[in-house]
């Protein structure tokens, strides 16, 4: 059924040539390099990922101790000073990154997966499933998660970062689920969802292909913010000392610096206290700087022509 098209646009009956848009990675790269702040954020995040993946491999399993350099000040040999045993603080920060980052990453993944799926389902299908999911969400939201963690940590072994991440994630998805639900609610009234329904597309397709990309930037931003939030939560737990110290990490460092080394009163232990704090600060900075790019990466409306 060939139809002569209108005169203004002469009929072009050719196959679609694959002159596709630049891939997600190419366009993301372009978005990142647009502003120096984003590049800095990106580099910081890469650096931390590298630290988490390979940090522990850079050093021997037992970090060398140096009895002659206990609480050594900042020097070329010890760029961040040393701790009570004369171990380099830099080495401690680097080797301690894996647990913290991995747990935070797992927490963020759990949060995002639970929050997004439950938010989408309850916002799109409404009715019974919505009522059930939202009551559960309200329940989760009313649980004060930090005290719960303190309680849980007494019965649960948090030696594995996955376990820690799971607990942080399971208590943290409520807010995201509510936000995704409300966005889904407004999207489902939009013409293109109605069109998809009347074209006979499946609900699964509508949720994953039509709605999800529109909340993509929001979810990606939440992923990053949850990472920082979870890091603070777990570091806080270790700092309080409610979780047994099985592995070296930033929270353990903070705890030891304050409660054992007396960094609050003695100036010589200060580098030991400040180095994990600095690590946290820089990571937060990196994530905040990078967030600026995330919105653009996942928002097609901001893409260039």
């Amino acid at each position: 059924m060939a139809l002569p098209a209108s005169k203004l646009d002469p009929p072009v009956n050719q196959l679609v040539v694959s002159k596709s848009n630049p891939s997600f990675w190419t366009s993301s790269w372009r978005i990142i390099v647009k502003k120096p702040g984003r590049v800095i954020g990106f580099i910081i995040i890469l650096l931390y990922i590298f630290m988490g993946l390979f940090g522990p491999m850079l050093y021997p399993k037992q970090l060398p101790i140096d009895p002659n350099a206990i609480y050594a000040p900042i020097s070329w040999k010890y760029p961040l000073g040393t701790d009570f045993e004369g171990t380099s603080n830099l080495a401690l920060v680097i080797t301690g990154a894996r647990y913290v980052l991995f747990a935070a990453f797992m927490a963020a993944i759990f949060t995002v997966v639970f929050g997004t799926v439950l938010g989408l389902v309850s916002g799109y299908f409404l009715g019974f499933s919505d009522s059930v999911i939202m009551r559960i969400t309200d329940f989760i939201l009313t649980i004060p998660s930090f005290p719960l963690l303190v309680v849980l940590s007494t019965v649960w072994n948090f030696g594995q970062p996955v376990a820690m991440g799971f607990v942080l994630g399971i208590t943290g998805w409520g807010g995201l689920a509510r936000a995704v639900r409300s966005q889904t609610l407004s999207l489902r009234e939009r013409g293109f969802i109605e069109a998809a329904r009347s074209l006979g597309l499946s609900p699964m397709h509508i949720l994953m292909r039509e709605i999800l990309p529109n909340v993509g930037s929001y979810i990606a931003m939440n992923l990053l913010l949850t990472i920082t939030g979870s890091i603070y939560a777990e570091v806080g737990l270790f700092f309080l000392g409610v979780v047994p110290f099985q592995v070296n990490n930033w929270g353990v460092m903070l705890n030891l610096a304050v409660f054992s080394a007396g960094a609050m009163s003695s100036a010589q232990a200060l580098p030991y206290l400040l180095s994990p704090m600095l690590a946290l600060l820089i990571l937060t900075l990196g994530i905040v700087l990078f967030l600026d790019a995330v919105d653009e990466m996942f928002n097609p409306r901001l893409k260039e022509v």
Binding site: G191, R209, P213
Partner: peptide, 8 residues
């Protein structure tokens, strides 16, 4: 409104 802004 009738076209999904996130899809080509």
């Amino acid at each position: 409104q009738a076209l999904n802004p996130a899809r080509s």
